[in-house]
């Protein structure tokens, strides 16, 4: 038994090392800006989807308003750079502002929206999203209206521009994945999952549900705001329909569901598969709706055939393959296990 666990850990560590190596060397091997562009977008979405998952995936509160934080982060960085006359690479120093703005919006947003559950929560997040999009259009003296805001010029060549943004996006993604894994294993994560399973029972055990949900919502919003800032600097501009894009929310949710909601690797896998596919379809087919139609079709296929996503479904298949032909271990057998064995195991658990 221990041997199997050790083998699994070694295999996981090796896979992780290979993935890390591939991620680091990707822009060196595929240096064409067209290819690194895919990498930058994919990593931005890895961060955004993982951030969404830390709140929605762990707590069960499905948010369709993440674009509020993404767009606000982008606008915050753009407006600050414009009004404070920040230029050159110093503009990256404004990224924490994007995070702070995201978190600052999440607190009042969450205080209202997190009082309700399930469908009502989803509807409220959509409503808030449209309020922010309308504000971006109408507060034109601040947001630039439909013209939007442009980013300061970065003195980089086309190749180095994409390459540097690739590594910035990779750093964001790695930090977010580490945060997500930390949250998953922490008491905070345990509370979030308890809320997802049954909020009333969690409250009954003394969990401060509102506080925990709000903290996760703000954390998720902060990271989304920060990565919105990165996206803005990469794209060099933001307008209301691009900053506050309903397709962004749908894509984030689809990527998480596709990979496996509530897992660490699922959202990463979902973003790495879907975002480049979406970019490829948009670039290949002149009809801009093709990618959206296929996105919708994929969503239906996921819901029908893999409602739990790739990672959990693959896990089930692997377990089934491993245990095929073996007799099922009845739970009663474990219950009847000698007490001494139980005591020995108790030490491990504690």
């Amino acid at each position: 038994m221990m041997g199997t666990v050790t083998r699994q850990r070694i295999a996981a560590a090796l896979a992780l090392a290979v993935l890390a190596g591939a991620a680091v060397t990707f822009p060196l091997v595929f240096s064409s800006p067209a290819t690194t562009n895919y990498g930058v977008y994919a990593l931005i979405f890895v961060t955004a989807v993982s951030a969404w998952n830390v709140f929605s995936g762990f707590s069960g509160y499905i948010s369709l308003g993440q674009a509020v934080f993404f767009g606000s982060g982008a606008y915050a960085v753009g407006i600050a750079a414009r009004d404070w006359h920040v230029s050159g690479v110093a503009v990256f120093g404004l990224l924490p502002l994007g995070a702070a703005v995201g978190a600052a919006i999440a607190v009042p947003f969450g205080l209202v929206a997190l009082r309700v559950r399930r469908h009502t929560f989803i509807v409220i997040t959509i409503a808030v999203f449209f309020i922010f999009q309308l504000m971006a259009y109408n507060l034109s003296s601040f947001t630039g209206g439909s013209v939007g805001v442009s980013a300061p010029f970065l003195p980089w060549t086309a190749t180095t521009f994409n390459e540097r943004f690739y590594y910035i996006a990779l750093a964001c993604a790695v930090v977010m994945i580490v945060i997500a894994a930390g949250v998953r294993r922490s008491r905070f994560g345990l509370q979030l999952r308890a809320i997802r399973d049954d909020e009333d029972r969690a409250r009954g055990l003394g969990v401060h549900a509102m506080r925990v949900k709000l903290a996760a919502f703000a954390l998720s919003a902060a990271v989304t705001g920060l990565v919105g800032g990165v996206w803005f600097l990469y794209l060099t501009q933001v307008q209301p329909p691009s900053g506050f894009d309903p397709l962004f929310d749908l894509s984030v949710v689809l990527m998480a569901f596709f990979g496996g909601v509530g897992t660490i690797s699922g959202p990463v896998l979902g973003a790495l598969i879907i975002e480049p596919a979406q970019l490829y379809l948009t670039a290949t087919y002149t009809n801009g709706y093709i990618s959206e139609i296929m996105l919708g079709a994929l969503f239906l296929a996921v819901v029908l055939f893999m409602p739990r996503g790739i990672i959990p479904t693959a896990g089930e298949w692997i377990t089934r393959l491993r245990t095929r032909g073996r007799p099922a271990v009845p739970a009663a057998a474990a219950a009847a296990a000698p007490q001494s064995a139980g005591k020995a195991a108790a030490g491990d658990t504690a």
Partner: peptide, 17 residues
């Protein structure tokens, strides 16, 4: 946690289920 498993040692067998 250790004390709880002392009271109910049989639970240790299902701890990861």
């Amino acid at each position: 946690m250790a004390a709880v498993f002392e009271v109910f040692p049989q639970i240790a067998g299902w701890a990861r289920q």
